[in-house]
Design a protein around this nucleic acid. Structure first.
Length: 477
RNA sequence: GGGCCCGUAGCUCAGCUCGGUAGAGCAUCUGGCUUUUAACCAGGUGGUCGUGGGUUCGAUUCCCACUGGGCCCGCCA
């Protein structure tokens, strides 16, 4: 094929001096200078002796202007054998075309990778959602704003890391494969560890109990970027595999973390967009601190007359009927949660701390100072989505044991999402855990807000997809 | 789990109402053209119409099931 005519279609390396964006933004300084760029040919306009190729690299696109009579023989050969979709290296002079387009006037063209496939068409591009997710490489080629979305995701992740690092925290890694799962209410994925006698292991639903062991051990400030797994259906705001950062800080309480979140989100918006206001799905979300505080038990009582803090399971059954919640398992935990969704969630478009939960919803949280029925916990909502969950951590081993026993009862009653009793953790906390604040900060959902995406799949590079029917394995070339 | 919509060329789509085994643009290939921006002009290649079954002389079209995707609801604090 190409090799016979002396062109290597898959060479080893190429020296790139500039990206498209550098040249466009720095044109006045670069005009007349020699540069070399590399990228994928996205469009090609051939007029005989002159050819225009739009080269796309990570930063964007720039036009290469190619006059046949200024090329050496090898470059000419490359040109005549290249097509849309090939990756090319262009060495040439920064200039403007007659129509004023900033271009690289080519002196040398190098084939960097020959494509065997045709790209989607240049106007409509690639729209089919299924193909976009199953073939993310094609999506990234055709829809460069997707790359921008993931750049924003990376910026947010590193922003959170920096914020925690600057508080003096250390980043740690704890097991993803766990003997026992805990720290949240969810169905786990299971797997088998063959060399440990085919032991059943769980993919973590949270890393909370491990990080707390580190606090007990004296680490004082620890966080982990945690991929968690919950064996549940996906929808536009839930993915079974998701990312959160959990952070624990000794000698703090949830009040300190509300301040931290205000600072973290507002500084990110300002740094990234130059504004505290962000457009999200038709709403303008204002990250100017302080964020609103919604004492939701009181607010709900005002709206409905129901005091969920003193609700019993019997009350819950009656409320499930009178409020037409239609829950399959109308215990007080699920009823309280459902009432929030029904009456209050709509009011959380702007950043809102939803705080002080009934104790029965919080098996790992300290009770509120001055109100034994409530726990010191907040959830931060933005754009009607929960983006962080934090509490003054329960450190009393005797009370902790009692809460585990309660959970175990729920579990026996058929709540398969209630976590199992963790004797090993109780053993650890009996050594004494300092007062501690803990928080889980979502990475996926804030990214949705900062990139104005409706679906969580748009901020996850390779969302899980169902198996395709087996017959289609032709792998045509 | 329930409801609605969708699957036709590599991509974006038309055709289906009212059955007669398929069409456009882009891409690709050939030829022409030395400043284009969706370049243009001429010609060519490209499809077991998601899968299986049913009705029919005949199904991309009508019916059923399955499968994959999207949206909404339920569930997932």
């Amino acid at each position: 094929m190409l090799r016979k005519s002396g062109i290597e279609p898959y060479p080893y390396a190429y020296n790139v001096s500039h990206h498209a964006k550098d040249i466009k933004e720095g044109f006045s300084a670069l005009e007349g200078k020699e540069v070399s760029i590399a990228g994928r040919a996205m469009q090609m306009r051939q007029m005989g002796g002159i050819t225009f190729i739009d080269i796309q690299d990570r930063s964007g696109r720039i036009q290469a202007l190619i006059r046949n009579n200024e090329l050496d023989d090898k470059s000419l050969l490359v040109l005549t054998n290249s097509s849309i979709g090939d990756t090319l290296g262009i060495r040439g002079i920064v200039m403007k075309s007659k129509r004023g387009e900033i271009s690289v006037g080519a002196k040398e063209i190098t084939m960097l990778s020959k494509t065997l496939r045709t790209l989607p068409n240049k106007w409509q591009g690639l729209k089919d959602t299924e193909t976009r997710y199953r073939s993310r490489h094609l999506d990234l080629i055709m829809n460069q704003e997707v790359l921008r979305t993931f750049e924003t995701r990376a910026k947010f992740l590193s922003h959170v890391r920096n914020a925690l690092d600057s508080r003096g925290a250390i980043e740690v890694e704890t097991p993803i494969l766990q003997d026992l799962y805990g720290g949240a209410n969810a169905k786990p994925f299971t797997t088998t560890y063959h060399t440990l006698g085919d032991k059943i292991m769980y993919l973590r639903i949270s890393d909370e109990l491990y990080l707390k062991r580190l606090i007990i051990g004296g680490a004082e400030r620890v966080y982990e970027v945690s991929k968690d797994f919950r064996n549940e259906d996906a929808d536009t705001t839930h993915n079974p595999e998701f990312t959160q950062i959990e952070y624990y800080e000794a000698y703090s309480d949830y009040e300190a973390f509300m301040k931290m979140m205000e600072e973290m989100l507002s500084s990110f918006a300002l740094k990234t967009f130059g504004s505290l206001k962000v457009e999200y799905r038709g709403d303008t979300i204002d990250f100017t601190p302080p964020f609103r505080r919604m004492y939701w038990v009181d607010e709900l009582k005002g709206m409905t007359g129901i005091d969920i803090s003193s609700m019993t399971d019997e009350d819950a059954v009656a409320i499930n009927d009178s409020e037409k919640l239609g829950l399959k398992r109308p215990d007080r935990y699920h009823v309280a949660d459902s009432l929030f969704d029904k009456y209050l969630k709509e009011k959380t478009v702007q950043p809102t701390f939803v705080l002080d939960f009934p104790t029965y919803m919080c098996p790992l949280t300290k009770v509120k100072r001055g109100n034994q029925k409530l726990a010191e916990r907040f959830e931060l909502y933005v754009g009607r989505m929960e983006v962080a969950n934090s509490y003054s951590e329960l450190t009393d081993p005797i009370y902790q044991r009692k809460m585990f026993e309660e959970q175990e009862k729920e579990r026996k009653k058929g709540d398969e999402e209630a976590p199992p009793f963790d004797e090993d953790f109780i053993d650890a906390i009996e050594y004494g855990m300092p007062p501690t604040a803990g928080i889980g900060i979502s990475i996926d959902r804030p990214t949705m807000i900062f990139t104005n995406q409706v679906s969580i799949k748009e901020v996850i590079l390779f969302p899980p997809m169902k198996k395709l029917p087996p017959e289609d394995e032709s792998g045509n070339r």
